[in-house]
Structure formats: C-alpha cells, structure tokens
C-alpha cells in the first residue's frame, strides 16, 4: 500500500527531454554537425598518412615525451594491431577518444578554473560532477540519441559527460593547491587576478591538470564499447559485435587493441605532464 502516489520522475524527465529536443533542435543539429565534421577530419587526416608512417610518428612522440621503453612498446603494440588488421578501427577509436578529450579540456579546464576562484561555483559543480560520474554511462546514451541521432556524435557526447569530471576536478584542485605564500607574494607585487592565474596558478597547477586530462583520456577510452551501442564505429564496435556473436577470439583481439591504445595514451599523456613540471 502506498502512503503517497508514485512520483512521476520518469515522466518529468521524458517531458523535459522532449521539450529540449523540440526547442533546441537547431542548436543540437549545429553541435552535431560540428562534432561530426571534427571527428571526420581527424579520421581523414590520420587515414591520409600511410599506416606505417603514422606508427613511426607515434613512436617518435612516445620517444620524445617518455623513455625508450614506452617508444618500444608503442612500436610493437601498433605493429601488432596493424598486423591483426584493426588499423582503420583503431583510427576511428583514436578519433573518438581525441575528440572527446579535446572537448573535455575546452569545456572542463575553464570550469575548473572558475570553480577554483569561486566557492559558490565549486559547491554547485561538485555534486553535478559526482552525478555525472556515478550515473551509469549507458543512461546518457538515451537522451544523446534523441538529441543527436545515431552515430559517432552521441557516442562522443556520452563519453564527454563521463570523461570530463576528472579534468574539472583536478584543474580546481591543482589551482587550489598552489601554496598560499606564492599567491600572497603575487598579490604583494600588485598582480591582477588574471596575471596571478596565468603567471603563477596555472603553471604551478599544470602537473595536476595534466593528471586530470590523463584520467579523462582513460575514461574516454573506457567508453568506446558503450559508444558503439549507439553506432560509433571503431574497436568498440568490434568488441560489441564479438559479444553478440559470442566470438571469443575476435573479442580478445579487439580488446587487446584497446588495451594497447590505452597504455600508449596513458604513458604519453602522463609524461607530457611530468616534463612540463620540470
């Protein structure tokens, strides 16, 4: 027996989403075409370069930012992916992850900075971030489909929502962790808020911000299989197909390719953060 009638939360959300879909159709279409164009451009550019040359470029980046071990791993890993025949899918996945991370940075870093400067903003953003990270990522797919249709764009939107919180959190944290005496010194010399931000706070917070971006990259990678549910192409789609057809071997190959990509991106992005700090 109910004391109160059931709260029609699901109906409210449905209404809200359908109102948004109608009212903001132009906006969503615009966003959709920009993101779609961006992903496509990355895929086209990466496909334009012969695969072996591209592998070479990644190896050089790995060697340049990290130790030779990471470079060796990158070389062997990417050659293995190439040999197994997952190269085009890898490029699709890479484009999806890169786009998600770039959007996360463009949106997340300013929010992180804002939260670090303003207690109220921080207090509002924190529970929102908790919500974004703990809500099962599948749920984001539903409105994403309604807003953006089927394809790579809703996959990216869902990835961004899931992957952006660490960038915001760690940007905020990094700036707040800048020692108080340095802020005081900066103030004592008459720095404005923006001078303080660009000359002291951001440079000193950079290692922490990079750690946040690294986390965002990892989370975006973890979303590739889920994104494939709404039609995003790439390694995730291969894994998904292997699951539905119960093909263990194919699933393992595609999964392994994701792992290799993850380790490579993780080490490279970590070391970019470190070399900046020195």
């Amino acid at each position: 027996m109910r004391l109160f009638p059931k709260i029609p939360l699901a109906d409210w959300v449905d209404n809200f989403v359908s109102v948004l879909t109608e009212r903001l159709e132009g906006f969503f279409d615009g966003v959709s075409s920009i993101i779609g164009w961006f992903v496509e451009s990355i895929v086209n550019i990466l496909s334009l370069v012969p695969s072996l040359v591209l592998i070479g470029i990644f190896v050089i980046i790995a060697w340049w930012t990290s130790r030779w071990g990471v470079a060796l791993f990158t070389a062997l890993g990417l050659l293995l992916i190439h040999n197994l025949g997952y190269w085009p899918e890898t490029i699709d996945t890479l484009a999806l992850v890169l786009t998600s991370v770039i959007i996360s940075i463009i949106v997340g870093v300013p929010f992180g900075i804002w939260a670090s400067q303003n207690e109220t903003v921080k207090n509002i953003i924190t529970p929102v971030l908790d919500f974004m990270q703990t809500m099962p990522a599948f749920v984001y797919l539903i409105p994403a489909i309604l807003f953006f249709g089927i394809g790579v764009v809703p996959g990216i939107i869902a990835s961004v929502i899931f992957a952006m919180p660490p960038t915001i959190r760690l940007t905020n944290l990094g700036i707040r962790q800048v020692p108080k005496d340095l802020i005081e010194a900066s103030n004592a010399f008459g720095a404005t808020t923006s001078q303080k931000l660009y000359k002291v706070e951001l440079p000193l917070a950079m290692p922490t911000i990079m750690a946040g971006i690294n986390q965002s990259i990892m989370l975006a990678l973890s979303m590739v299989v889920i994104a494939s549910l709404v039609g995003a192409p790439g390694l995730g789609a291969d894994v998904y197909r292997a699951v539905t057809q119960i093909k263990v071997g194919v699933g393992f190959e595609a999964g392994l390719a994701i792992v290799i990509l993850a380790i490579m991106l993780d080490r490279i992005s970590q070391n970019i953060g470190r070399s900046k700090a020195d």
């Binding site: 020692p179 005496d181 340095l182 005081e184 010194a185 004592a188 010399f189 000359k199 440079p203 000193l204």
Partner: peptide, 14 residues
C-alpha cells in the same frame, strides 16, 4: 611603493 620579502622566500619554483 612597497615590496615584500617573505619568511619562506615564496619564490616561484617554475
């Protein structure tokens, strides 16, 4: 007009 010198130096490490 005013400059300050701090106990723990407060130099910018970067």
């Amino acid at each position: 007009k005013l400059s300050m010198v701090f106990q723990k130096f407060a130099l910018f490490p970067h």
